[in-house]
Amino acid sequence: MPPSPRTPARLVVLVSGSGTNLQALIDASTSPDYGAEVVAVGADRDGTGGVARAERHGIPTFVLPVPDFADRASWDAALAEAVAAYDPDIVVLAGFMKLTGPAFLARFGGRTLNTHPALSPAFPGMHGPRDALAYGVKVTGATLFVVDEGVDTGPIVAQVAVPVLDGDDEAALHERIKSSERAMLVDWVGTLAREDFHLDDRAVRLGGESHDH
C-alpha cells in the first residue's frame, strides 16, 4: 500500500510576473479542504508582483536572477537547491518564463506543473494566443502539463477549451484564456495534492504508484 500524500501538500510556486495565478492558489489554500499550501515563492528576477504578493501573505520568498550566475547550468542547479530547501510535494510554474534544466528536472521532474495558453500540442512557445488567431482556429484554450525537458511538451494533466470569438484580438483572447487557465490550475493542483499522482508513460494517473518502496 503506497503512503498517502501529505496533507496539506507543500507547494513551491515559481513566478516571473504579477502573480495572478499564484494569488489564486494562495486564495484557494485558505480553505482547509483544498489540500495544499504555498510554502515558498521563487522568482527569476527582482521586483516581481508575485514575490510582493507572497510577502504580503507572509510566505517565504527567494530570487535567483539568471545574470547572477556564470551560466544557465549554474543557475539551474541553484534553483534546484533553493526549491529543495522547502521540501515541496509539487512545484508550480505560474507564469515562470524560464525553462528549467537537467539539474532541476533530476530533482523535481514528474512533480512540476506548468500551464500553456493553447491546446497542446498546437501552438507551443511564447505566443500561443497570437498563433491561434493567425491560424484561424475557432477553438483554442489552455493546457496544464507535467514539465519535461521540451517546450510545452510534457504529459498533459488537463485541458480547457476557449472559443475564439469574431473580433478577438490577441489581448482579448489571451485574457479569456488566462481566466480559464487559472480556474483549471487551481482545481487540478488541489486534486493532485489531495489524491497524489504519478506518470504512466504520457498518462498522468491519480494516486501513488502501486509498487512498494
Rank of each mutant, 00 (worst) to 15 (best):
P65D: 12
I90E: 08
L93C: 12
T153C: 01
I90V: 15
M97T: 11
M184R: 09
L14F: 06
R6Q: 13
V51M: 03
G19V: 07
V38F: 04
V13E: 05
T115P: 06
T61D: 09
G141S: 07
H127L: 05
A106N: 09
A193N: 08
V160Y: 00
A134V: 06
G110C: 11
A134S: 14
A106Q: 14
V204G: 03
A73K: 09
D196I: 04
A52K: 15
R56L: 10
A203R: 15
N21W: 02
R111Q: 13
G208V: 01
D168G: 06
V51K: 04
R111H: 14
A80N: 01
A103C: 05
G141M: 06
F96S: 02
L144M: 13
D152Y: 01
R107L: 03
G95R: 07
S210F: 02
A28T: 10
T143E: 04
S210P: 04
T30Y: 10
I90P: 02
G125T: 03
V189M: 07
E149T: 10
K98Q: 15
G136R: 06
R56A: 14
V157E: 02
V189W: 05
L206V: 11
F69A: 08
G207T: 07
V39Q: 09
A94G: 02
G207L: 05
D33I: 13
Q159W: 09
D166I: 01
W75Y: 13
A132S: 14
S16P: 11
R176C: 10
T115L: 13
T143R: 00
G47Q: 12
A134T: 13
G49V: 08
A158G: 02
T20E: 14
D33E: 15
F96V: 02
A82E: 04
H213M: 00
A77Q: 14
A94K: 00
A134N: 12
L11V: 09
